Structure formats: C-alpha cells, structure tokens
Amino acid sequence: MSTSHTPYVLVHGAWHDGRAWHRVAPLLAARGHRVFAPSLTGHGDKAHLLGPEVGMTTHVDDVVGLILDEDLHDVVLVGHSYAGMVISTTANRIPERLAGLVYVDAVVPAHGETAVDVMPVTQLMIDRAAGGDEPWRIPPMPELPAPRGLFGVTDPADVAWLRSTLGDEAVRCFTQPAETDNPAQGAIPRTYILCVGDEPEGITRRPVPATRPDGEPTRIHELHSGHDCMITRPAELAELLLESAVASVA
C-alpha cells in the first residue's frame, strides 16, 4: 500500500457526529489522503433516523456501506470512544479492506462484549434513561467543572460549538455485542491513542492489549488531552494518524 493517498475513515463516538473531525480531516487531506468522516445513523444529517431500533450494528452497517460504496481499499479505520466497538466489528466483517485500526481513547472489546461490559459506567446512564418517557434514549453526558469540561473540551467557544453538535444516543448502541471472531481481523495492525492527564474520576480505563490477536505487537501512544482530542489537540492527533498509516506498511 502506498501511504501517499491512504483512505482514512474517521468514526465519531457516542452523541457526536462527523463534524467532530472538522479540525483533523483537513490536516490529513492536506497531506494527500482521502478522508471520510461520516455521521452515523441518528447523528448529524442523519439525526432524524434516531429511534429505539438503532444500535451498534446499525453503525457498523453505516461504515461498511461507506467503504464498499466508495470501493475503498487499504483503509486506515479510526474510531473514537464508543466507536471502538464499531471499528472492531467492521474489521470482523471486511478485514480485507483495512490496512490498520486506530483506537482513539476508545472502547476495545473482546468478542461478545458490549460497551457496558467494557465501560460499566454506561449502565448508569441506561438505568437513568429507563425512568423517562423514552427509555431507549440517552442524552449526552453533562459538562463538568474544569479541567473535565464537556468531553474534555474546556475552551468556551469550543464548548458552545461542541454542544450544538451533540445528540441523543440509543440504548442498543451500548448493549449490542461486538463481533471479533473472524481470524482474518486478527492480523490487522492496531494503534491505540490514549488521552491522559485529565481522566474523569470514577472511570477506570481497561488496559489496552499489548499484542494484537495474531501475537504481533500493537502501538500505544499517549496524548495529553481531554477525551475529545480531535477538538483540543487536532494537529498532534493528525500526526499520530499519519504515523499509523506508515507503520501499517512497515
């Protein structure tokens, strides 16, 4: 694979939409790469499609459909936060299309695990929603005092912009299990980018795997940033994503 025109597919996390990548995508494109940052079903231009039937597999269908419709090959597939579930299952379905997986402060599931299994605090949000008029609908997490902010974003202008892009998430996104049982997905190079320094209290990060399923080593980078590093540290994140493409063909 030549890295000069690598296709990147950037998958946003829960409650966000494709606009979350608006500072990172141009940096990758400026280096000659094709960049796709779709909004998943129920978000952004697809917000009107949100309903109780939307789940994690719906979002996998979105990403798989994009890659196949655009006839993309040697894709670097990037997932932020909840989208670790999405890119893992996408890799299970179409491993032959992917050159690398990048988990950006993301959930890293084993086969059959749900987002709740990996991040148990999610169950509290599901339980809270269960007492409402629409128990399938989970609103975004609230803004916290600095330095936590809104998903780690603290600049007032950025917070206001980010808040305008957020939408509710369907419970099924957190309760549908990941699929990672295709042996072919185990050979895809993996990079983990961990946002460190401003971790919220009460949320424990599961250690990321030191090796991928076929025994080859993974790459782990730390980025001093709040959770939404694509907004707060776009240049640094873009450089790590560019490195991941090079490392995938090394």
Rank of each mutant, 00 (worst) to 15 (best):
M1V: 13
S2L: 12
T3S: 13
S4V: 13
T6P: 08
P7S: 09
Y8A: 05
L10A: 05
D17I: 04
D17Y: 03
A20C: 14
W21C: 05
H22W: 14
H22G: 00
L27G: 10
A30M: 12
R31Q: 15
G32F: 12
G32W: 11
H33Y: 12
F36S: 10
P38E: 06
P38Y: 01
S39D: 08
T41S: 09
G42W: 04
D45R: 14
K46G: 05
H48E: 14
L49Y: 07
L49Q: 15
L50C: 08
G51E: 08
P52R: 04
E53I: 00
E53V: 03
T57Y: 11
T58N: 04
T58P: 03
V60W: 02
D62P: 11
L66V: 09
I67P: 03
D71R: 15
D71G: 13
D71C: 12
H73D: 15
H73G: 15
V78D: 01
V78Y: 04
H80W: 13
Y82N: 04
G84E: 01
G84C: 02
I87F: 01
S88G: 00
E96V: 00
L101G: 01
Y103N: 03
D105C: 10
A106K: 02
V107W: 01
T114A: 03
A115T: 02
A115E: 02
A115F: 02
D117I: 03
V118F: 00
V118P: 01
P120E: 03
V121S: 11
T122H: 11
Q123R: 15
Q123H: 06
L124R: 15
I126G: 01
A129L: 08
A130H: 09
A130F: 00
G131Y: 09
G132N: 04
R137T: 02
P139Q: 07
P140E: 06
M141W: 10
L144D: 00
A146D: 14
A146F: 07
P147C: 13
G149S: 10
L150N: 03
G152P: 05
T154L: 13
D155W: 09
A157N: 12
S164T: 09
L166V: 09
G167S: 15
V171R: 01
V171M: 02
C173N: 12
F174H: 08
T175L: 07
A178L: 05
P183L: 11
A184Q: 13
G186Q: 07
P189M: 04
P189D: 04
Y192F: 15
L194S: 12
V196C: 08
E199F: 03
E199W: 08
E201Q: 14
G202R: 12
I203M: 13
I203K: 04
T211M: 09
T211W: 04
R212K: 14
G215R: 10
G215E: 09
T218R: 01
I220L: 12
E222M: 10
H224D: 14
S225D: 07
S225M: 08
G226D: 05
D228S: 15
D228M: 12
D228F: 06
T232F: 09
T232K: 10
R233M: 12
R233F: 04
R233D: 03
R233L: 07
E236G: 13
E236K: 07
E236I: 05
A238H: 07
A238C: 12
E239I: 05
L240Y: 09
L240S: 08
E243P: 01
S244H: 08
S244A: 15
S244N: 05
A245C: 10
A247W: 14
A250W: 00
A250V: 11
